[in-house]
Write a protein that binds this DNA or RNA. Structure first.
Lengths: 123, 123
DNA sequence: AAAATATATGCATATATGTGCATTTATATA
DNA sequence: TATATAAATGCACATATATGCATATATTTT
């Protein structure tokens, strides 16, 4: 699978913003689909910024989305290039200690899932 | 060795600019110190921009410099963190085919070294 | 000491980027 | 059908960033 350098630069630029890095980091950490409202809670950020940053991440190819009802689920795209894998390795080498609040809030929020699914929404 | 997330973000931001990525890429490819004038020739970019981008790369921790006489030599910093290694892996997975001109000009320019050292300067 | 050369930097400017707020769109539910 | 809710987006604005040009700094050579 081929990756144009411009696409790699888009991924790097996407990850170089702290909010987007944190989003990608929790998606990688959760290792599962997260709905937007869960991401909002995990980061303690506002809705419109999370939404906008998710769009940029999606456009860069780092994440993918799946719509289901009124929820939209995001997850890492798992594109099979060496470059993507190296990026993923880099992100996953960041430990919980470096993003303790995000890690904690994500855990708290995921604990409220029912049958492994988000049932809360925004509040 | 510890890496603050802010430092990682600085590295990512540094690499997300195409000119800086190309500089870092040829430094990694050369696997050796390059003087500024060699970098200028390899990229076919102007002097002041190369100089400024090198400063940003240095500040991010991606490269280091060594002054010798009126020449300044830059090289990858080889910091021993997992994160840095993953970044390096990512960059080195970009083949010559994706930056053919830079690769070619670098090769041509390095061929003009004498006893492994730059003797041309700018011209 | 003067001139030449390698590299860095200050200033001006155009473009890109991130964010706040208000609003829209899409879907579900009463 | 009306209402509620999840998510996305248009506009305004402040800040960041990249670049061109001119010039400064540092070192070597004459």
């Amino acid at each position: 699978m081929k990756l144009l350098i411009e696409q790699l630069l888009d991924m790097l630029k996407a990850l170089s913003d702290k909010t987007r890095f944190r989003i990608f980091w929790i998606l990688q950490k959760a290792d599962a689909e997260l709905c937007v409202c869960e991401i909002i809670d995990a980061l303690d950020e506002n809705q419109y910024n999370v939404s906008r940053h998710l769009k940029i991440l999606k456009f860069s190819g780092l994440v993918k989305e799946r719509k289901q009802g009124k929820f939209v689920y995001y997850s890492i795209s798992r594109a099979g290039t060496k470059v993507y894998q190296a990026l993923l390795d880099m992100v996953s080498s960041i430990s919980d200690k470096q993003l303790p609040y995000d890690a904690y809030r994500l855990k708290q929020r995921l604990a409220r899932r029912v049958n492994g699914r988000c049932v809360i929404g925004m509040h």
